[in-house]
Simulated assay, not measured.
Amino acid sequence: MRIVVDLNRCQAYAQCVFLAHEIFRLSGEEALTYEPNPDDARRLQVERAVAACPVQAIVMDRLDGAERGVSS
């Protein structure tokens, strides 16, 4: 799977960090860093983090190019 975060849209609410702390991290108070290609074993955590983003800054899809349909 692949994750893309629109860092211009991200407001550092950190809901993704709370739900998938192995994937998303805050550096300081506002700088989000993340693993762009997490292991599929983390899919449920990532899907929850995508859904929880209040500004819909996170998009997730499969690496084979097929749209996952989960974006937020």
Score class of each variant (00 low, 15 high):
D64E: 05
A20D: 03
A12N: 11
Q11R: 15
A51Q: 15
T33K: 06
R9H: 09
R48Y: 07
E29D: 14
I3H: 03
R68H: 13
Y13R: 04
E47P: 00
V50T: 08
R43Q: 12
A49P: 03
G69R: 05
Y13C: 07
V59P: 00
A49W: 00
R9I: 14
L32M: 07
L32Y: 04
R43I: 07
L7T: 09
A12M: 11
G65F: 09
D39Q: 08
R25N: 12
P36L: 15
A12S: 13
V5Y: 01
N8H: 08
E29R: 11
E22W: 09
Y13I: 01
E30P: 05
V55A: 12
D39L: 09
Q15I: 00
E30Y: 06
A14K: 04
R62E: 14
L44G: 07
G69F: 09
V50E: 06
A57I: 05
D61T: 15
S27Y: 08
A57S: 10
C16T: 02
D6H: 04
E29G: 08
D61Y: 13
V5L: 03
A57F: 03
E35L: 14
V70H: 00
A41P: 02
I58G: 00
M1K: 14
L63P: 01
H21I: 10
R2T: 12
V59I: 11
I3R: 03
V70T: 03
V46R: 00
I58A: 00
P54I: 00
Q56Y: 10
Y13G: 01
F18L: 15
Q11L: 13
R25I: 09
F24D: 01
L19R: 12
A51S: 13
R62L: 15
D6P: 06
G28L: 04
Q56K: 13
D61C: 12
M60N: 00
A52V: 04
F24H: 02
Q56M: 10
P54H: 02
V46H: 00
Q56R: 12
Q56D: 15
Q11M: 14
L19D: 02
R2D: 10
V4L: 14
V70E: 02
A31C: 15
R9F: 05
L63I: 06
P38C: 08
Q15W: 04
D40S: 13
L44I: 05
E22Y: 09
F18G: 10
A57D: 03
A20I: 05
A66I: 13
P54W: 03
A20F: 03
S71T: 09
R25A: 14
A51M: 13
A31P: 13
C53V: 05
R42G: 02
R48A: 14
T33A: 06
L63Q: 07
R48W: 07
Y34H: 03
F24K: 02
R48P: 01
P54R: 01
Q11Y: 06
R2W: 09
I23Y: 06
S72C: 15
A52N: 04
S71Y: 08
F18S: 15
E30N: 07
V70F: 04
A14S: 09
V17G: 08
I58V: 05
V59Y: 10
A20C: 07
V5F: 02
A20P: 02
P38N: 13
M1S: 14
T33E: 04
E22G: 13
A14V: 03
E30F: 09
D40G: 14
E22D: 12
